[in-house]
Design a protein around this nucleic acid. Structure first.
Lengths: 130, 130
DNA sequence: GCTTGACCTTCCCGTGACTGGAAGCTTTAC
DNA sequence: GTAAAGCTTCCAGTCACGGGAAGGTCAAGC
């Protein structure tokens, strides 16, 4: 099938699919007219990539997952390890954002938000008293 | 003072300081030898930028904050609005990451992590039964 | 005066993961 | 027959810098 149909079937924009081919993730056959010709297997792999990316795996991690996916003899431990590493990254990011949220909330609460120029947020940014 | 000293004083790498000049954030004078010459005011503004960036404000938001900082007649409400917008962005990102965490945890728990090839994580990515 | 090394300058390329757009094919629909 | 849709490649841009090359400047030591 052409790239347009493949795009509809896997949920990725054509541009992204071409990009994935360029970096060697999913390489379709070509028709006599030079058009890309995607098999069902190709589309499965594109769907796979779409889900993995949505779960926050990087392209390089996706490449690993895809080769594990294709390797029917893989150990499930390998996949689990990748997932758990990603999980701890997510935890770390959440913690950072929570800290950021605390700081911003404190600043916003301290600020009157009126027409006057006094602003604890600006003062804090300027390095004023904590 | 030269860029190296300014860098030490504000906590930003020289590369970043040059970049901020390039995009019109903080533009120092130049000495006869062509070296950048940072005033105390410049360094204050660089420090301000460093803190705001650390709090997750984008460069364009920093530009706004900086002009509010420089405008001693600003209304604190303007600053508060910017902060609260950023706060709700942070909230949204946290919620997304929490959802992601739930999915990843569920997958990791379902996976035995042994030498056998059965892997619910791969199955899920491949579009298997939910 | 000379050398050494630290510091400064500009310029260009690379990052990650695409996205937009231009110029030019092919195919499809009416 | 023609117009529109869809496909191709290629180039440039995104964001916020970082790395590194090639070359100018400055301060210290001999």
């Amino acid at each position: 099938m052409n790239i347009g149909k493949a795009s509809k079937n896997c949920g990725l924009p054509s541009k992204t699919i071409r990009y994935y081919e360029e970096i060697g993730l999913v390489q379709p056959l070509r028709g006599a007219n030079g058009y890309r010709d995607y098999s069902e297997t190709d589309v499965h792999q594109l769907k796979f990539l779409q889900r993995a990316r949505r779960l926050g795996f990087s392209i390089e991690e996706c490449r690993d997952l895809l080769s594990l996916y294709q390797d029917t003899g893989r150990a499930s431990a390998d996949v689990k390890a990748l997932t758990e590493a990603k999980l701890s990254e997510v935890d770390k990011k959440i913690a950072e954002l929570q800290a950021l949220k605390t700081t911003l909330s404190r600043l916003a609460e301290a600020c009157q938000g009126n027409e006057r120029p006094d602003c604890p947020i600006i003062d804090d940014l300027a390095g004023g008293p904590r």
